[in-house]
Amino acid sequence: MKPAPAISAQCLDIGYRTGKAGQLGIQRGLHIDLYPGELTCLLGANGAGKSTLLRTLSGFQPPLGGSICIDGRPIEEISKRDLSHLIGVVLTDRTAIGGLTAYEVVALGRQPHTGFFGRLSRADDEIVRNALAACGIATKTHEFMASLSDGERQKIMIAKALAQECPIVILDEPTAFLDVVSRIEIMSLLHSIAAEQNRAILLSTHDIEQALVLGDRLWLLSREYGMQTGVTEDLILNGAFDRLFPHAAIHFDPLHGSFYPTVTRQHIVDVACHDETLLHWVVNILNRNGYAANLTAGTECTRALLRIASPHDIAWSCGTEQIAFASFEELAMFLKQRND
């Protein structure tokens, strides 16, 4: 049985109010549920309304229509102060915190819990240190933000959201501008926090690869098809991804969980290869050079046949023509010449 959703939105219209009674709707009629204990990834093209949706769910801007319930209560009935105990955010906004230490920034997350002057109690101090440790940056505790890398800063902001002790954490593109190591670290971190601390974590990202690996649930948002939600594997296998970027030049490969450019294939080549990795890259080089690979070659070969035993043993036969290549570089040169 599914747990009660942390955030539940019905018939949600999002967008901006423009002037008097004017509206710029971006998405209409969204039905979404965000569950605790799960990492939910919001994917979609630029302009599909990802940031607008996150801002609306975080309470930064009012919905144009429909309802949002947080922890079972309608969002408009929750005071800003109470909301700061329910939702912690990590944004892409410009900050001016270079002159604060990592500890001081994470301690800002305690503000909803501290008194008028923000003085930290012993318990607050422990929560801040635990948040830093949970994000694997305890060694940077007393370093200035200015001296940290982009990945470390992002972890500090996540630690700030953790120190806020909210059941819901919403992050707007937390892995943008990060290198692949930091991207994987941060996604793994968020996934384990969701599971271990039973928090509902929602993030938007363009990093489909990591979202498919670590996202428990996906929200796919597109202008044309609206919102499709579900457990990652269900969405991959039911073709939802082809509706994410409805664009002729792009298609989703469910085997590898990635988008590929649709190639206009001029020739078809039969391919015989017993190694899966090798096969993948053979298809890749053929596609890039305008060939389609036929993997179910029959016995009677009328077309060209490519046999690959190893990256250094590639054989091309077409009728009487027999050529051997010792590397993919030689194959690529041959394919290009043959195209001309």
């Binding site: 975080s58 930064f60 800003k80 102060r81 909301l83 700061s84 105990h85 939702i87 912690g88 955010v89 944004l91 906004d93 410009r94 900050t95 001016a96 915190i97 604060l100 001081e104 920034v105 800002l108 997350g109 503000q111 909803p112 501290t114 008028f116 002057f117 923000g118 806020q164």
Partner: peptide, 22 residues
């Protein structure tokens, strides 16, 4: 009296709002 909100403001207004600052 503004010390606490001023520290939150270093993060920008939206972060400050999310920290419960009016």
């Amino acid at each position: 009296l503004l010390v606490k909100p001023l520290n939150a403001m270093l993060l920008g207004t939206r972060y400050a709002e999310n920290l419960g600052i009016d």
